[in-house]
Design a protein around this nucleic acid. Structure first.
Length: 419
RNA sequence: GUGGCCGUAGCUCAGCCCGGUUAGAGCACCUGUUUGUGGUACAGGAUGUCGGGGGUUCAAAUCCCCUCGGUCACCCCA
């Protein structure tokens, strides 16, 4: 194996064609859908002052063990962003755009954790956030955009899990009730969950360990602790989803890993992913976050979708296929390359996707390269063509017929064949 | 942070248990069969610090120890 220094660091990898192009198409499709819903792109810094992400919650794993942080040369505590919602709210607090403020984003996030299938230290997300309205219609819009995006990708086996975790006051009351219950059941909990309980009782509900399942299933439900306002908000969200025919299941134990959520939380999972990591997207409402960062109370709601995991689901469902070819035309020149130089440039200026060989290789080698390139047509120039003022146009896809075309009509002919 | 599995040619892997001829296969690559013509076939060719270090031995890809890396899972999340 190569020296371990000259390889991508743990949890990162190179995306080369066709994966790189598929990623770009994915983001383009998302941009189209978000853009046509009134969301504008925002490009954020990839790192922030660590305190920005501290807002995700001191008891969360993201803050406690997954923060990719360091001190810069100026002595500042910097963290690579583990997600973008906090950055967006920071940007809102800093720039105070007029409301409602609807933005979408795409780009890498960073979490320092052990990589596994569908989990990387650098991973791409697309997402959007809407700040201002408290209206449950906005929750519905946000969920619907994600849902329509999955549909546009061709995904069929996506499940929407929905919950409300109430207002922060509701949650305080709920956590009291939950803690009382868990305290009594403590001996039946796994050791890990007992530790979790001490740090953040809510997160015990997330445990998938067999010992905990029974205790969790009989635990008090957050849905029994919602205030009237939160309850009617939740009801409206559900009614709206039904109006849009978006199927969902209410999952009272869905608390999500970040502390800033209130009221609506949701998560998308894929049934088709063959890996432990099947959550392909998630989000919720965070009405208190802007105020925590020093702005007036400003409600917000949004989601983020994992690009890699979503594409894993696409692979499994054979949807959103990778591109097949990059090229249309391959220029073969047996006169030393000078003709290829001019012809490829000319064709490229005309908008064709064109490549050629270098190093004056044999015609056979050039034809092989033409075939491998996936191009549909070879434009062949040899001494005969040059002296007759023609080029040979050869079909690379079908049986391989070819014809000579006068150089002047080459572009018109190729346009006819390819467009 | 914890555990399982795996590191041999550019890629996928065999060989390792039972140490011993020049370390193999397929794919990919290059050349030719083809006096300008790819995709099929055939013939030939190039390619390896057997992840790294140490140890045992007359002899290590093969046995032992350490280490680095990858991968999957737990935790948790996208």
């Amino acid at each position: 194996m190569k020296d371990s220094v000259y390889r991508a660091p743990k949890g990162t990898r190179d995306l080369v064609w066709p994966d790189s192009e598929r990623r770009r198409s994915f983001i383009n499709l998302f941009a189209e859908i978000a853009g046509s819903s009134g969301y504008a792109e925002i490009v954020l810094p990839m790192f922030e002052h660590r305190e920005v992400f501290q807002r995700l919650g001191d008891g969360t794993d993201v803050v406690r063990k997954e923060m990719y942080d360091f001190e810069d040369k100026g002595g500042r505590n910097i963290a690579l962003r583990p997600e973008q919602t906090a950055s967006i709210v920071r940007s809102y607090v800093e720039n105070r755009p007029s409301l409602p403020w609807k933005v979408w984003y795409a780009g890498p996030n960073f979490r320092y954790e052990r990589a596994q299938k569908g989990r990387f230290r650098q991973f791409d997300q697309v997402g959007l956030e809407a700040l201002g309205p408290e209206d449950p219609h906005l929750d519905i819009e946000v969920i619907a955009i994600a849902w329509r995006f999955y549909e546009a990708l061709g995904l069929r086996k996506v499940n929407l899990q929905l919950n409300s975790i109430g207002t922060s006051q509701d949650r305080v009351r709920y956590i009291e009730a939950l803690s009382r219950y868990l305290e009594n059941q403590k001996e039946f909990l796994s050791k890990e969950s007992q530790d979790t309980f001490a740090v953040n009782p809510l997160r015990v509900l997330d445990s998938k360990r067999d010992e905990d399942v029974q205790v969790i299933s009989e635990a008090p439900s957050i849905l029994d602790h919602l205030s009237d306002g939160a309850q009617s908000h939740f009801n409206e969200v559900q009614e709206g989803l039904e109006k849009l025919a978006i199927p969902y299941i209410v999952k009272p134990t869905l608390v999500r890993g970040l502390d800033y959520y209130v009221k609506t939380t949701f998560e998308f999972t894929s049934e088709s992913i063959d890996a432990a990591q099947d959550a392909i997207g998630g989000g919720g409402r965070y009405d208190g976050l802007a105020a925590e960062m020093g702005a007036p109370e400003t409600p917000g709601v949004g989601f983020a979708l994992g690009l890699d995991r979503t594409l894993m689901a696409c692979d499994a469902e054979k949807s959103f296929p990778e591109p097949e070819h990059m090229l249309e035309i391959f220029v073969v020149d047996t006169t030393g390359g000078a003709n290829a130089l001019v012809i490829t440039d000319e064709l490229r200026q005309e908008g064709f996707k064109v490549d050629r060989s270098f190093d004056d290789r044999s015609m056979k080698a050039q034809m092989k390269a033409a075939d491998k390139s996936g191009a549909k047509i070879a434009v062949i120039v040899g001494d005969d063509e040059v002296s007759n003022g023609v080029v040979t146009i050869r079909d690379l896809r079908g049986k391989g017929g070819q014809e000579e075309i006068a150089s002047e009509s080459m572009i018109a002919d190729l346009r006819k064949k390819l467009r």
